[in-house]
């Protein structure tokens, strides 16, 4: 995808999505991040990333399609910025709004050309109050296979 086409995506609003953390998924997540002893009523704060990411109105594979990148192309989560406005609750259905906030093409000595694409996602409750704001930046290598 050429840079001009990519930059034209900035400001694109993702379809509105929804997400509810189930008790089962929450328990599985706690085990997978080695926090089995977690005994709090609110969801683990890692859900400030997981809930908006999983609930955004564009699945991650469709997002990759949208930015013209194959799922097996080695894209990575490069940066995260999470602002907690309210505790995240288990069993509550939240709305997720989002847009493509920025696009940047860079050149790395080891990695070659890569794109940084940032999504701005908001998890909001039934009263339309923000619960979490999440900026997630993905690294999309655009060159041939990296050298290291």
């Amino acid at each position: 995808m050429d840079l001009e086409a990519l930059e034209a995506l900035v400001g694109y609003e993702l379809p509105v999505g929804q997400y509810c953390i189930t008790a089962e998924d929450h328990k599985k997540t706690l085990g997978a991040i080695h926090q089995e002893g977690y005994a709090f009523e609110v969801a683990h704060p890692v859900y400030a990333h997981l809930a908006p990411h999983c609930g955004m109105g564009l699945t991650i594979d469709k997002f990759f399609d949208f930015v013209d990148f194959p799922m097996d192309g080695g894209a990575l989560y490069g940066e995260g910025d999470l602002t907690y406005h309210k505790p995240i609750r288990i069993g509550v259905t939240y709305t997720v709004r989002g847009l493509i906030a920025s696009v940047e093409r860079k050149q790395g000595a080891r990695t070659g050309t890569f794109d940084l694409i940032t999504l701005h996602l908001e998890l909001v409750d039934s009263g339309n109050e923000p619960v979490v704001t999440s900026l997630e930046t993905y690294v999309f290598p655009r060159s041939e296979t990296p050298t290291s």
Partner: peptide
């Protein structure tokens, strides 16, 4: 643990 997170996130990235 990686497989569990893939399941929770419905992350199919191979």
């Amino acid at each position: 643990d990686i497989e569990v997170i893939m399941d929770v996130m419905e992350d199919m990235n191979p």
